[in-house]
Design a binder for these strands. Structure first.
Lengths: 147, 147
DNA sequence: AGTGAAATTACCATAGG
DNA sequence: CCTATGGTAATTTCACT
């Protein structure tokens, strides 16, 4: 549960470019390649680094509309609704939360019509409250623990 | 704006493991390395691949609490509130949206107290509505356009 | 923990078809 | 888009600080 400054720096560097080589990471941290390799191994082992991935820009693929939808299932429909959300290919993330709204989902869509159709699909099982994303002041970033 | 099946496969593979080599990608797509390299180059050029990064598991670092907070700034406080959110190190993503709530932010926190303090910090400038994340039915994944 | 150097292994870019 | 080549670069191991 503790990271030193070097670990933080490594995570920060990899968050910006997940393909940096050990050599490059070593140069940026004033360490040797083997040391970096060892630290990364431990960070992965501990689960701090969950994996290496890419960011895909959905807009470039025609998904010009993004919505955040709060979903409140009707009585007895919770599990079905949860499954329906999971099976929506347009849903890129969904959390189950406390409060009146049970789920909060992020959708990527090609049109307003697509959104309409999607929401109609669960209208009999859940109430929904949709917010259209206008801009993104904070884009997926690492939390506090990084420099 | 169009991807063929091979492009989709490449994106999918890289989403799962962003450090796969050209060789490995080639093997998985029945292509040669140079072909894969060329496709990746184009995907990056088009902005479809936005970048390579890591997923960090905040829980392993003591951030055991996750909250989604809807924020409605008081009249005249919009820009200040936006800046305050951006400057919260606990905020890992924030969208500006349509509707009564102007912002929807995701926070990673070490304790309920930390959340309390954070929200108190903007209480005079905005109304907030907080949902605690209990589970995550859909974890950050690629949208529809992938197989 | 970390270093440096060696040894191994694998990788990538290019050219030519 | 493929194969083949040439050269480079990356990772791991080891002995040592």
């Amino acid at each position: 549960m503790t990271l030193d400054d070097t670990d933080r720096r490594l995570l920060s560097l990899l968050a910006e470019n997940g393909r940096l080589s050990l050599k490059e990471l070593a140069a940026a941290t004033a360490l040797s390649s083997p040391s970096v390799a060892e630290r990364l191994r431990k960070l992965e082992e501990r689960g701090v680094i969950d994996g290496f991935t890419i960011d895909v820009n959905a807009r470039t693929l025609g998904y010009t509309l993004q919505a955040i939808v709060r979903v409140r299932p009707m009585p007895g429909q919770l599990h079905i609704v949860e499954r329906l959300i999971q099976e929506m290919p347009q849903c890129v993330e969904c959390d189950k939360v406390t409060g009146d709204d049970c789920f909060i989902a992020r959708l990527h869509l090609r049109s307003m019509e697509e959104l309409d159709t999607l929401l109609d699909g669960i209208a009999e099982r859940a109430q929904t409250n949709t917010s259209i994303v206008k801009s993104t002041p904070v884009k997926r970033r690492l939390p506090a623990f990084l420099p």
